[in-house]
């Protein structure tokens, strides 16, 4: 695997530290007075989501992590496993519910996602920024109430619950922002 010298350090680099993959989320170059350069990094563990702070001197190198992102679609859920398929070669990958985490709320059949592979094995997924979901269960809203600042809970086809405006009815299709979990708009009645 390739390695990175400190002068190649930058945000977004995926590196291997103590046998685990990390994403460099911050990099700060420091050079005190007439002294030696230091590279202050914040790194996110791609397996455990923990944050690591490390400072490196100019002579250090970090090994590149074998991490790639592929376009995949969600096929189905079987117990604790979520099954995805690589859109280009039809290869199937399984993620545990722990790895899928919060994104499970958005996973409906056929949804296109970005899957992260580490040494060829899936470790996490990122859903698209917006997904459209059908309402399967909610209290009927007051007629004519089109205010969007008053909300009620509603269940969608994935079984998850979101806060939606009062006027939303069962059978409506709504758009949710997956980065915040917020309702965006009604797509169709």
């Amino acid at each position: 695997m390739a390695s990175y010298k400190t002068n190649e350090f930058r945000k977004g680099l995926k590196v291997q530290i103590d046998g685990e993959p990390y994403l460099m989320i911050e990099m700060n170059f420091r050079k005190p007075g007439k002294g030696a350069a230091l590279f202050e990094c914040k790194l996110r563990n791609l397996l455990r989501n923990t944050i690591l702070s490390r400072t490196y001197r100019g002579t250090e190198t970090l090994e590149a992590a074998d991490v790639e992102e592929i376009d995949a679609q969600f096929l189905y859920r079987q117990g604790d496993m979520f099954v995805f398929m690589d859109n280009t070669n039809y290869e199937q990958y399984e993620l545990t519910s722990e790895q899928v985490d919060d994104a499970a709320k958005y996973l409906k059949e056929g949804l296109g996602c970005s899957l992260m592979l580490y040494n060829g094995n899936p470790i996490s997924l990122t859903p698209p920024n917006h997904v459209e979901l059908e309402i399967t269960e909610c209290e009927p809203g007051a007629k004519g109430d089109t205010a969007t600042n008053v909300t009620k809970p509603a269940k969608v086809e994935t079984g998850a619950e979101f806060q939606v405006p009062i006027f939303i009815k069962e059978g409506n299709i709504i758009k949710i922002d997956t980065r915040t979990g917020d309702y965006v708009e009604r797509v169709s009645n």
Binding site: T55, Y56, T59
Partner: peptide, 9 residues
């Protein structure tokens, strides 16, 4: 927090 490799600095 001491920089990586500073043991032999």
């Amino acid at each position: 927090d001491v920089p990586v490799g500073y043991e032999d600095a």
